[in-house]
Write a protein that binds this DNA or RNA. Sequence first.
DNA 1: AATGAATGAGAGTTCATTCAT
DNA 2: AATGAATGAACTCTCATTCAT
Lengths: 234, 234, 234, 234
Amino acid sequence: MARKTTVTTKHVPTAKIAQSADWRDAPSRDARGKMIREALFSAAAAVVGERGYQEASISLITQRAGVAQGTFYNHFKTRQDLLDQLLPALGKDMLEHVGQCAKQGKTLIDREELGFRAFFSFLKQNPHFFRILNEAESFAPNAYRVHLDLVAAGYVSFFRRASQNKELIGFKERELEVVAFVLMAARSYLAWRYVYGEETHDDIPDWVVRAYRKLIEKGLSGSQAGNGDGDTDV
Amino acid sequence: MARKTTVTTKHVPTAKIAQSADWRDAPSRDARGKMIREALFSAAAAVVGERGYQEASISLITQRAGVAQGTFYNHFKTRQDLLDQLLPALGKDMLEHVGQCAKQGKTLIDREELGFRAFFSFLKQNPHFFRILNEAESFAPNAYRVHLDLVAAGYVSFFRRASQNKELIGFKERELEVVAFVLMAARSYLAWRYVYGEETHDDIPDWVVRAYRKLIEKGLSGSQAGNGDGDTDV
Amino acid sequence: MARKTTVTTKHVPTAKIAQSADWRDAPSRDARGKMIREALFSAAAAVVGERGYQEASISLITQRAGVAQGTFYNHFKTRQDLLDQLLPALGKDMLEHVGQCAKQGKTLIDREELGFRAFFSFLKQNPHFFRILNEAESFAPNAYRVHLDLVAAGYVSFFRRASQNKELIGFKERELEVVAFVLMAARSYLAWRYVYGEETHDDIPDWVVRAYRKLIEKGLSGSQAGNGDGDTDV
Amino acid sequence: MARKTTVTTKHVPTAKIAQSADWRDAPSRDARGKMIREALFSAAAAVVGERGYQEASISLITQRAGVAQGTFYNHFKTRQDLLDQLLPALGKDMLEHVGQCAKQGKTLIDREELGFRAFFSFLKQNPHFFRILNEAESFAPNAYRVHLDLVAAGYVSFFRRASQNKELIGFKERELEVVAFVLMAARSYLAWRYVYGEETHDDIPDWVVRAYRKLIEKGLSGSQAGNGDGDTDV
DNA sequence: AATGAATGAGAGTTCATTCAT
DNA sequence: AATGAATGAACTCTCATTCAT
């Protein structure tokens, strides 16, 4: 049974947003420029992650990056320009990480569970990602749309292969996207509830993963008893 | 089979946000106050719905409500105070509407489909709701949390009854909340994608509802062919 | 002869830019608004007159008017909006003053001399006008064009009447405008040179007026000796 | 009669602002420096001529000159330093051109007409000059004063000679400057009105020149009919 | 000498909130 | 209670100038 596989994600190195040693000791001018750009970028990610896009003022970002306000405009055209780049940059890392982890699985459901877990391990490593992603809907809507479409596309082609292998049956092409959106949605809402919710877990609890797996494996009507954790059935 | 039930929602009257006749012809002092308050409230809902919380300035809201800026502060403590009340008020209506519709269903899955459809019919009647709900995560986080908890609680008690009836089996108490969040998530993301997405449908397409139903009914591994629409399997 | 007429201007009351007593003791709200508006206006005139349009920042203007920066935008749409109103307002006063003075003259040339002198007496009473007028060419070009056209139009109709009286002969209709521009130009350049020039006279020297009169009365070839001041001919 | 002389200006070569071949192929270090300096100079003239002093930023100027921003400060002390040199450089060319043309005339009035026409032909060849000259009053006031004094001085000595020849009579030494300023003023205002005004002539219309000549030849009271163009008297 | 990124002061403008009327 | 002008802090962005390379 699924829950016995006790699937765990092995961390794949993700392109870190440079925590940039002081740019003053840069080897060359070009390198310095790059370091400052990255300092601004990672400062912005941190500020947005901690306080939200709304409060991510140029003043806060440059202060955090340790450069003058004017310097910002040597690297980004406008404030929005930088904000628009936040999600794509981190989103790429996330996709990479999740993709790498998921493909270790043998079955469709195992791969989904691995991807699911990988999403949360990415969140743990990139604590700012979640807010950057979610608030992008309001503050960088184009980036948000592109991101969701990208993730959905990956999901759909993942399912399409499963369909061709007969691992997944009964869904027509365009329905695969519906499934993709439901699973993406689930990750997001469950993270909101169980990672960032009142009881601040660092990690998604294991029983949540199992409940999720049960639901998407069998649906609401197909489930059967016994999952071995401490709870009793309702 | 599920899709034959062709479940449809009957509209239940929802507490309208007062479109407020001119408050100048109010019968009493008190009534006048109430009318202004409601005018401000509905103006805010409209502004937020159309332009987002960010642009919902006091100036815009009071202008739309037809009162002076200062009047605002006779009715709400701060701008945030009003913004925080937007979602609860509309959320109550939504819950009411969805609850009324869902309970017409005979089976668990039918009730879920009815609730699902009711969510979208509510969106259609209340075109501002979706943005008010979604952006609340960034702009009125407390209200957002309360709203989600409220909806989840309703969902959980709905599932709890189903569990007791043996309509739903295999989920322990605390797992019901996981299921609730997944289904709430699904509604939100599918609305984002299929109602407000590029191809602007007024309504959620029927094939999306069917795909959704298939997924939650049987899960990923339990599905079987044939749903009678034009598509061929992958 | 010209210099015997010893024409002098009688000052006609000109609409003063309010030097505004403190607006805090205004009788009514409306009056207060007007006073602040005028305070801003006259502060702007003073700043532009003393430092030029370039340095006339909102900060300087509001400081001088004794109000907060934000207050500015209750009265003017933008900085440029105010700057665009400076010349028209003062220009109207100038025209009025010059017109009143000029019409006391009996002959064409007398009227021109009176108008000429009136221009300089206006400058003396409104020490900011000259800079406001001149720099408007760069900083409020529309206002500048309108102003010049207005003054020219007045001049032309003045000459047209003189033509009809046979006081002025030999100029065709469209040539009158050329004459008007030359005389306007002369006032401006002579003010620049003899009022605001190195030797800061308060008033245009009388011998300059006489030289000007001689030139426009007879032209370069028609002049004859003797004007009785201390100079000897070249 | 004056208008029969049909005076026309022959173009005298004017010191061009170097359109500077690429400074990268300069023969020597020194020459290279000079070429860059000139490139900056002519870039500035072009920018000021097209957009005005206000918008003539270092960035725009250096970009146009094809050098780095920092390079600017190897050649000029400050931005103002360069702006202050613009008018003197071009003004010298203008004086040269006008002087050369004017001295072809036989009589005082003919020379004035030739100078007048030469001013406009210079404007045509140096389309940036007019703006550089006019806005200098606001943006490079010292340069402006020096320029006007220089032109006036030339004019005065021109008139002084005419006085000594008895071509010009009735003006005392210091009055000659008044005449000079009036004529300089006339050129400027007439250019503003008839060259850069709404109906964009490339050239000053001939009838304007004739009207101007009539005015300064005979003054307002000395003119007599008939100038043979299509207009009728008023 | 040429480069071009870094700097930081200062610009115009917005807006939630206050308060005298 | 309703008004709407006054407030001032905070915002994004520009640009002349500096300076390490």
